[in-house]
Design a protein around this nucleic acid. Structure first.
Ligand SMILES: [Mn+2]
Ligand SMILES: [Mn+2]
Ligand SMILES: [Zn+2]
Ligand SMILES: [Zn+2]
Lengths: 136, 136
DNA sequence: TAAACTTTGCAATGGCATTGCACTCCTTAA
DNA sequence: TTAAGGAGTGCAATGCCATTGCAAAGTTTA
């Protein structure tokens, strides 16, 4: 386990501090998008701003992407190893209104819409709200 | 002009107060999604909470829909006359990163994605960021 | 006309993101 | 080996935005 986590950091040239290993592990285990508060609650003793800066470092190095799911708090989810957070890496995010969990639907294909003349897309955020499979 | 605005309110059984007429007129004229702060700035003398409650009333009566464009502030845009803010009324919203304006792309069709087994959609927010036609 | 209800203004409050500053820890070069 | 420099962390603000309590002002109704 630990090897995998440390490897992910090395792959992105991020130094493996204790906090970084913990946060990364959490994100891998939970397999969903987590907010700063959720992460803070999972550790209990870590400072929120440290986690914030950890996530910031992760973003800057394409380890996580941030998701605006309309819940009021930004969620963070693991990137794939080959992710460069471009339009091509974009995928649907699903917020379950029952369990409040947000998932990356990386296997659900999106057909790129053809925008009106003159509009050019750089980034997309496709958020779907509903009931997830475990809450059905 | 005024008739059209008052009619929109009557259609939704919302009493036409001064503030409501003004806000509705603004939203019609601007033809884009506006934030609370933007609306407040357009009047200069109106109270923010009054505008907030005006917009809340509008939402509850399907006169406007709220848009989370990731800018930090919620945007509000006019609904069509027959809108009931269901999944079918959903459309793409476009945030221009240059002029910071958010538009409703009601004529850009979206193909509904087929979600994984057990997932059911109730609401969608499809946000695309880029450069708009007037900023190109 | 007075009571009842609605709308408005003003002043909090609360949540979340972000940052300044000092302290600790680690790395590095003399 | 040790001191300096840099990176990471904790704590305590700050700022922005959404939302609400409360009292005043305006409207409607009996
Ligand atoms: Mn994702
Ligand atoms: Mn819209
Ligand atoms: Zn669920
Ligand atoms: Zn623009």
């Amino acid at each position: 386990m630990k090897d995998v986590i440390e490897n992910k950091l090395k792959l992105r040239s991020v130094k493996p501090t204790a906090m970084r290993l913990l946060v990364l592990q959490c994100l891998m285990e939970q397999n969903r998008a987590l907010s700063l508060n959720e992460l803070e609650a999972l550790f209990e003793n870590a400072d929120k701003s440290t986690i914030f800066r950890t996530l910031k470092t992760f973003q800057e190095n394409y380890l996580v992407h941030r998701i605006n799911d309309g819940s009021g708090a930004i969620k963070y989810a693991l990137c794939d190893d080959d992710c460069i957070c471009s339009l091509e890496d974009n995928h649907i995010h699903f917020l379950c209104t029952k369990c409040e969990k947000t998932y990356c639907l990386k296997d659900t294909p999106i057909t790129t819409p053809s925008l009106p003349n003159g509009f050019r897309a750089n980034f997309a955020n496709y958020l779907i709200e509903g009931i997830c499979s475990t809450c059905t």
